[in-house]
Amino acid sequence: MSDPTLILRVRNLTARIATRKEEIHAVRGISFDIAAGEAVGFVGESGCGKSVTARAIMRLAPEGTSIALGGSVDFMGQDLLQLDEKAMRDLRGRRIAMVFQDPMTSLNPVMTIGSQIDDIVRRHTELRGRAIRQRTVELLNLVGIPNPERRADNHPHQFSGGMRQRVLIAIAISCDPDLLIADEPTTALDVTVQAQILRLLMRLREERGMSLMLITHDFGVVAGMVERVNVMYRGEIVESGSVERVFAEPAHEYTRALLHAVPRLDTAGRVL
């Protein structure tokens, strides 16, 4: 890689999803960079290919489908699309981690919260025995779970949605990843909890100097969170630039439409 400060360099990425019935060109040749410690937003309506882009980087296809990938995903000097599944598994969760959209369904209901953090710590670190649980409790504390020692033995159904998302963030940062992909991390949460989770993500990113790829359909979420933003539409990046620039003078028609779709408080409404 020419630029050592770049952590991710995606070139001409394509993703075709093959289900039993049809084939969808979900991502049509997109290119972007993410620098070390940088936060980049991906904005677009649902179905625009932003989640597929995230899954493509992780090389995770949903059960029962297969994704054909093209182009290159250069992650710290190695092309992820060329790695075999075993090497990919060693990398997932350790160097690239992901936070998913729906915390209510993202935790295993029959395992305790603690053991779901224990297993990733055991998989990717040298820690063994009681040191694992110590690390788990530390992580729960870090993401703001009160009484972490006791709560680690609870099951997911004893946690609220916001608390579960904190647990999923604890899982994601457990092995100090270089890149954290957050795919609509606040969409399923109510507004006050959304702000807490976003603040937590910001704090962790600053403390650990990790890069953040924040995927959302909500311009309001990216505004305070990222330096640069890529606007996606129908599998392509239609506009990219600094958040200030894209907000102030959107170049693409779609970006303007998307910005318009955000309800605003400063323009007078009309009484229906």
Partner: peptide, 14 residues
């Protein structure tokens, strides 16, 4: 198999 938590488990690299 199609539940989200299985995807999360795979994303952990387990």
């Amino acid at each position: 198999s199609s539940q989200d938590f299985v995807m999360v488990a795979r994303a952990k690299g387990l």
